[in-house]
Design a binder for these strands. Structure first.
Length: 293
DNA sequence: ATGGCTATCCCTGATAGA
């Protein structure tokens, strides 16, 4: 698939250095889509509110809320100028999409008749204005899989298949669509700090990567990897062993876009600062910016 | 590589995450 977009110069040198019109003025019609596994939205509320203030994303996709809907901090989110589509559950999983505008439609999980109580997927579609197609933002917390060959591993592989079927059923490859989230798969060895240690490990096994490839085959582009073919771009570091200080990470938080959206991508970056300081999530936010026509 | 952290609720131990 040929997509004409390239990385701005001065990568990671600042806040989206490519986002000027050449005269110092900000490019117009820029939207930011963020994915962030917060590992409990309650524990991360202060950080999340500061992030909203600082980055002002148009869409913030959250994973691992770790609480039922009534525990979601809706008042604080609304006070910050956002509305939220929440899909929570007690103790585990849970996803949400925060946005400045209201969606025209929202769906939760796949509606495929499978008895699956895990709240892992939410999709919302937004009208972006005259002359622009509606934008669909999908937020997924992909199953962890625990260990290769386990029941949870089989469930994980099936979950990818169900997602592909959902895409085929509800969307077209030429839709303006972003699929973001914690994929719990490192797509290739460059996305892993030590591919030898992690060889055929959960998150790197061939079957997981094939399952991801099947989803990508719908017509999706890994925006970060497309722009930065040589940058590891880790987004997760284990809490233990001081992994972050040693940069022993994985790139598992991904922002995929259909070709029509990927063409509009101007930069993607990992907000590593969010992994520092007091009480971080073990995942950093990944931020992509798109210039709408 | 046993576990090492952090979070949840059946909350002072078990379970899950990645």
């Amino acid at each position: 698939m040929s997509v004409k977009f390239t990385a701005p110069s001065g990568r990671f040198g600042g806040h989206f250095p490519g986002f000027t019109d050449g005269t110092g003025g900000l490019t117009k019609n820029l939207i930011k889509i963020v994915t962030w596994n917060v590992n409990s939205v309650g524990q991360r509320l202060d950080r999340m509110l500061a992030f909203l203030e600082r980055e002002a994303p148009d869409f913030l996709c959250l994973q691992e809320l770790k609480g039922a809907d009534e525990k979601f901090p809706m008042e604080a989110v609304v006070a910050a100028g956002y509305q939220a589509e929440v899909f929570g559950q007690k103790a585990y999983n849970g996803v949400a999409i925060l946005s400045k505008i209201k969606p025209v439609s929202v769906s939760r999980n796949f509606g495929d008749g499978v008895d699956d109580p895990a709240a892992r997927f939410i999709s919302a579609t937004y009208e972006m204005g005259v002359g622009i197609k509606p934008l669909t933002v999908m937020c997924g917390y992909f199953p962890n899989g625990q260990s290769i060959g386990s029941e949870k591993y089989i469930y994980k592989l099936e979950w990818f298949q169900r997602l592909r079927k959902y895409l085929d059923t509800h969307h077209k490859p030429d839709d303006l669509l972003a699929l973001v989230g914690d994929f719990n798969v490192a797509p290739a060895d460059i996305d892993v700090y030590d591919p030898v240690v992690w060889r055929e490990h959960i998150h790197t096994s061939i079957r997981e990567r094939q399952a991801l490839h099947q989803v990508v085959g719908f017509g999706l582009i890994d925006t970060f990897r497309h722009l930065y073919p040589d940058d590891p771009g880790y987004s997760w570091w284990d809490y233990r062993q001081m992994s972050f200080l040693q940069n022993k990470g994985l790139r598992i938080d991904l922002i995929y876009a259909t070709a029509s959206l990927a063409e509009l991508c101007r930069d993607v970056r990992v907000d590593r600062n969010e992994r520092k300081g007091e009480k971080p999530s073990d995942h950093a936010p990944v931020i992509a910016a798109f210039e709408l026509p």
